[in-house]
Computed example of a mutant assay.
Amino acid sequence: MLRICTAIVLAFMPVSGIADIMGVVHVIDADTLDVGGIRIRLHAIDAPEQDQNCTTEHGVAFGCGAWATDQVVARFAGQYAKCSATDIDKYGRTVATCDVGGVDVGSEIVSLGWAFAYRRYGMDYDLDEVAAAAADRGLHGFHVQSPAQFRATRAKGRIPLDPNCRIKGNISKHGQIFHVPGQEFYERTGINLSRGERWFCSNTEARAAGWRAARR
């Protein structure tokens, strides 16, 4: 009940009037925390999405979004934080800077290469990212699509929600056709679930559902 009341107050109060938020840190992902029962989106940083993959210099893919979250969990989970609100985002989350034991959480995360400076919303951590990139710390040692670009591509139905089910079942004037990664039209093909298009986890599954393989 207290959490509901607090959320209602935050929704109708101007940001400048929000008191500091204090409490134990529960990590949601590398740029999102729960502090004192309030969902916090850390100001001016952007981390890979939980299901986002990156690639090593040898071409090996790994779940860098989950990895970044694990680093933040190990560093900050269970500690006491004091956060100062700067805004409310479109999802109703409180945007804030947070301090744990005298450490700026956003600065620490960016400095260690677990997230990037989100310059669109502030230059607070620009130099932290520059230093991390120069030292190849964390994500800077891998090939990483920017989280913002990843979200935009996924929104167009080009990135699967389940990384294990990457085959695209597309419906066109040529019928129900599935595309596998590496084929000519795979990247440009988007999946619109409302039209009956879907993702498949295997060629066998796609064929059993009535889709045929793309010729190229």
Rank of each mutant, 00 (worst) to 15 (best):
H58K: 15
A61Q: 03
R207S: 12
L139W: 10
S107Q: 08
G190W: 05
G196L: 06
I159M: 02
G157H: 10
I177G: 09
Y125N: 01
C64S: 02
Y118A: 00
V105C: 01
A131I: 03
G63Q: 08
G101E: 14
A132L: 04
E205A: 14
V9T: 12
A7Q: 15
V110H: 04
A96R: 00
G196D: 00
Y80M: 15
G113W: 00
G59F: 12
V27A: 09
K82Q: 07
R195L: 09
H174G: 15
A133T: 06
V100R: 12
D104E: 01
A117F: 01
Q145I: 14
D29T: 08
I18M: 00
E187Q: 10
A148R: 09
D20I: 07
I8G: 14
G59M: 11
A135K: 09
G210F: 05
G122V: 03
V144M: 10
G113I: 02
H179M: 04
A148S: 12
F62A: 07
L112K: 13
G182F: 09
V144Y: 02
F62N: 00
V27H: 05
T189A: 06
Y121W: 08
A85W: 03
Y80H: 15
Y121S: 00
L2G: 03
C98K: 09
V100G: 09
V9L: 15
V100I: 15
V27M: 01
H26E: 14
R216L: 11
I38N: 13
E57D: 13
T69V: 04
N170Y: 06
D87R: 07
A66D: 04
D126C: 05
A206F: 08
A208Y: 04
M22H: 07
I167N: 05
G92S: 03
A85G: 07
G182V: 03
P160Y: 02
F62G: 01
D89H: 07
R119I: 08
G78I: 03
G23W: 06
R75N: 03
R151N: 05
V130L: 02
G210Y: 09
W67N: 05
D126H: 10
T56D: 09
R195A: 11
V144G: 01
E57K: 11
I167Q: 01
A155V: 11
D128N: 05
H143L: 10
P160C: 09
Q145P: 10
A11G: 13
H58E: 14
A132Y: 04
